[in-house]
């Protein structure tokens, strides 16, 4: 039986994190749950602990990349076979965890990304965001050589070798997109699977519509840097 760790990165999400932990535990009772609290100023750590999660507290805020990486390091240290990332704001459906874990267990992929755009659920992005998502999808699909429809999705399952790699090298700036490029360069098999997602229940997206063009530019730049980067 594969040991599965659910990693929930959380920053100021006291209103949703407990529900997420409970829902995750309900849908995958055999898994362990770790909440990585990225220096929240509110009661995120308390809420997560009372819901029964192991809580790792960052002393100060370091961003989503470092937060998820702490989870991977914990997974590596404790010998987990599979690590699943689920956002602490409640937009990732815990009932789909088994769907993204399955291909990893069966050895069909090293990394499985849960995509909102493969027909399940009714998530509708705004026009600006939709355009951005489409462009990222084209660029990343071209680089990775597999069709990727939801490159910014943080709902993922990683196998043992990916855990080992990402624990040592996790991108900081735009980790979801960048990790795909880096993992592909390392020769890992990446695939997507359909999941429905909800509008986030609390917290705020890190991307506002006004800054979306600038955001796209920065992500493209980061992808270019990743392409020329020497992978260790």
């Amino acid at each position: 039986m594969a040991r599965v760790l659910i990693i929930i990165p959380a920053y100021n999400e006291e209103s949703t994190v407990a529900d997420v932990v409970k829902a995750v535990k309900e849908h995958s009772p055999a898994s362990d749950v770790v909440v990585v609290n990225d220096g929240s100023a509110d009661g995120t750590a308390r809420e997560a602990r009372s819901a029964g999660a192991v809580v790792l507290n960052h002393t100060f805020n370091m961003g989503i990349g470092a937060t998820v990486q702490t989870g991977f390091r914990y997974a590596l240290k404790n010998g987990y076979d599979i690590a699943v990332q689920v956002d602490g704001d409640g937009q990732h459906p815990p009932e789909h965890i088994k769907d993204i874990v399955k291909p990893v267990i069966e050895g069909r992929a090293d990394l499985v990304v849960g995509s909102r755009f493969l027909g399940v659920g009714d998530y509708k992005p705004s026009v600006a965001r939709g355009a951005g998502i489409a462009i990222f999808s084209k660029v990343v699909s071209f680089i990775v050589g597999v069709k990727m429809t939801d490159t910014t999705s943080g709902f993922r399952a990683s196998g043992k070798r990916v855990i080992e790699y990402l624990a040592g090298n996790y991108p900081d700036d735009y980790p979801e997109v960048e990790a795909l490029v880096l993992l592909h360069k390392k020769g890992f098999a990446i695939m997507e699977t359909a999941v429905g997602m909800e509008e986030r229940k609390g917290g705020q997206s890190s991307i506002t519509p006004v800054s979306s063009v600038y955001y796209m530019f920065k992500v493209m730049l980061a992808i270019c840097v990743d392409l020329i980067k020497k992978v260790k």
Binding site: V54, L56, F60, A66, T70
Partner: peptide, 12 residues
């Protein structure tokens, strides 16, 4: 970053 991550894990 690495130190802060180590501290988080060790403290837990």
């Amino acid at each position: 970053k690495r130190l802060a991550q180590d501290i988080a894990i060790l403290r837990q």
